[in-house]
């Protein structure tokens, strides 16, 4: 199957899973914004996304996408490391036109993975997981208020968001490129769209975190 045994195929898997996760982030960020606009509305969404069958299917699917994305990232990295041969360059220098993120996607991925773990412990483990186990989940708004009132949590989340931003600036345009939706004219446009998109998503997330940290100070 070409998605496993060809280099372009493996890239397609990376890009399709990656792009799907970006869409999830967009959805998640929009949901979070509700927390600023209307805390009641946010709680309603949390309730709506409890241990319902559709939410569970979504969660499992999401987890699947993430696992495939991460697994492939490892496979690709190992293969690429081998392809460089046994000897490394003594001196390396960066090229001006090459984005830093594009060369450090794996490192960024690690940071993001760490962030996800923290995030799951903070929220998912106390909400959907608890509900699946048959107990009563905690209130979403309360969790947000509590988590972001701690300065260290804010710091962790901001680092996480930054990593996501870098990861996305390369990831979004790169996924389009991998699918072949690119040419000389569109290359700068796609990169620009990619930056805007990444910034928008990260700003949406960050605004909620900062908003509730500021609120906690008042």
């Amino acid at each position: 199957m070409w998605l496993f045994n060809s280099s372009v195929g493996r890239k397609v898997v990376m890009c399709v899973t990656g792009a799907s996760l970006v869409l999830f982030l967009l959805f998640h960020a929009s949901m979070n914004l509700v927390a600023i606009i209307s805390p009641e509305g946010y709680d309603m969404i949390c309730e709506f996304l409890g241990a319902n069958w559709y939410a569970l299917v979504g969660t499992v699917g999401l987890a699947g996408l993430a696992v495939i994305h991460i697994l492939y990232a490892f496979i690709l990295s190992v293969q690429n490391y081998r392809a460089r041969g046994n000897a490394r360059y003594e001196v390396t220098d960066r090229q001006e036109s090459v984005e830093w993120a594009s060369k450090n996607m794996l490192v960024l991925g690690f940071i993001i993975l760490g962030g996800i773990c923290v995030h799951l412990i903070h929220f998912w483990a106390k909400m959907q997981l608890v509900e699946i186990l048959g107990a009563i989940p905690e209130n979403g708004m309360e969790l947000i208020r509590y988590t972001f009132s701690q300065w260290y949590n804010l710091a962790i989340y901001l680092v996480w968001f930054a990593a996501i931003w870098f990861h996305l600036t390369h990831g979004i345009w790169s996924s389009m490129h991998t699918l072949g939706w690119n040419n000389n004219i569109w290359m700068p446009r796609i990169k620009c769209i990619s930056n805007i998109f990444a910034t928008l998503i990260v700003l949406m997330f960050a605004s909620v975190a900062i908003y509730y940290f500021v609120i906690s100070l008042i």
Binding site: S7, V8, R10, K11, V12, L76, Q79, N80, R82, A83, R84, Q95, E96, S97, V98, E99, S102, K103, M105, H170, W173, S174, H177, T178, L179, G180, W181, N182, N183, N184, M187
Partner: peptide, 29 residues
């Protein structure tokens, strides 16, 4: 035994003939 492309663009940046990265998009397509 060549590696997998991750669209970093170092190739096009260093290409002595400035072959464009968008050729890779066409190959993918």
């Amino acid at each position: 035994g060549f590696g997998n492309c991750t669209n970093t663009g170092a190739c096009a940046a260093e290409c002595p003939k400035s072959v464009s990265l968008s050729n890779i998009a066409r190959l993918n397509r």
